[in-house]
Amino acid sequence: MPCCGRARAGGRHSKLFKMEEFMLIFRHEDGNKLASPEQMQIWMKQTMDWIGGIAAQNKFSGGNGLPFDDSRVVRPHNVVTNGPFGEIKETIGGYIIVKADSVDEAVEFAKGCPVLQGNGNSVEVRKIAKRDGIH
């Protein structure tokens, strides 16, 4: 390691408190497509590198993968179907929440998302409402 440093309680940049939070939602064109374990592993690593790059800027707030197994869709009149697939084309594969000065900065983060390697996939960028009674 080129650097050495002491353990310190994380002194957060005061500017970060003024930042907005945005959710980056990964939309997959076809959730039915099965990937090989090797392919999955490569995606996983790419995703971790992408998130790590955001976290290294202290702009990562959280996130989750949403596996397709054990998924259900509940419709009116107690109609429950297995998974979101079949009738609709798009499925959501996961999301992360980032801190950003503006939607443009959040979009810049989204551009690096490995999900976009799949044609037809997309990343939706949405601002998270603040619980301040105004938004």
Partner: peptide
């Protein structure tokens, strides 16, 4: 480091990750 930074950010971890 990718994982560590998600749990807790620190400048030194960010630098070591980049290295």
């Amino acid at each position: 480091y990718n994982q560590l930074l998600q749990i807790e950010y620190s400048p030194i971890a960010a630098l070591n990750r980049t290295y």
